[in-house]
């Protein structure tokens, strides 16, 4: 896997929050259609890493590129880049004053210039696909957490992104709603979407990941196929992390 045909590539990325060195010289390459799951204890820098990929978190040094193009620092070029990178947040972040349908159509219309009619037709296909077509005319607050998160996934997909970032997409959900969101993500992975997923759902990692990355203290400690990582973790830190999340 060389960086020329990588979908996402990070090289020597450093980031500080004040005195705290949250990302320490992190390098990561994600191939097209690859599904990478990032796991690690809280405070390990995994969410921050995810958020640097569309520059919601600026970095102090290093290079990030998407589909061979360096991530611009700011302005219209950065906005164009972000339009190609879908992002799903822990807290859904749907636009509270817009219906679900408007949430999904707004960016295609205003950023991509798609007509309202075409945007709505595509949005309905996406909403049906994530199983909430009948909720299109309702407002975010009228939906359950799982439904809101599926709407947020549809909103991101409506931009036809090259890569999808998921920042702990199920962490804010009631347990019985986690699987409905994970099912959507698994089917997305099966369709060949390039995905970077920060999650605590080890079952999802086993089911859908091509590669699992284990982060701790701002560094990538270990990366491997899911079965190798879960069955035979190499590092002591990964072993102790896995025993703490799996033995309960």
């Amino acid at each position: 896997m060389n960086s020329v045909n990588a979908m996402v590539s990070l090289a020597g990325v450093n980031k500080h929050f004040g005195d705290l060195h949250v990302l320490k010289d992190v390098s990561l390459t994600v191939a097209p259609q690859e599904v990478v799951v990032i796991v690690g204890p809280s405070g390990s820098g995994k969410s921050t890493l995810c958020r640097t990929i569309n520059r919601l978190e600026p970095i102090d040094s290093g290079d990030i590129s998407i589909d061979g193009e360096a991530l611009p620092v700011e302005g219209a070029a950065l906005a164009r880049h972000r339009a190609d990178v879908g992002m799903v947040f822990q807290s859904f972040n749907l636009f509270a004053h817009k219906t679900i349908l408007e949430n999904v159509t707004l960016a295609p219309r205003k950023v991509r210039g798609v007509s309202r009619k075409d945007a709505e037709a595509e949005a309905m296909v996406l909403l049906e696909r994530v199983g909430i077509g009948e909720k299109a005319r309702q407002f975010p607050a009228e939906l359950s957490g799982g439904q809101q998160q599926r709407a947020a996934i549809a909103r991101a997909l409506a931009m036809k992104p090259k890569v999808m970032l998921f920042d702990e997409p199920t962490s804010a959900l009631d347990p019985e709603m986690v699987s409905e969101v994970l099912d959507v993500m698994v089917s997305l992975a099966a369709e060949g979407m390039t995905m970077i997923v920060v999650t605590h759902e080890m079952g999802f990692a086993r089911r859908a990941a091509d590669r699992v990355i284990f982060m701790d203290h701002g560094q990538i400690v270990e990366e491997n196929t899911p079965s190798a990582f879960f069955d035979a973790p190499q590092s002591e830190r990964a072993r102790s992390f896995l025993s703490s999340v799996l033995d309960h």
Binding site: L56, A79, N93, L94, F95, A107, A152, A156
Partner: peptide, 12 residues
């Protein structure tokens, strides 16, 4: 978070 979502979708 809604502002972050807007930025992530490519809004200026």
């Amino acid at each position: 978070g809604q502002l972050e979502a807007a930025r992530a979708l490519g809004f200026n």
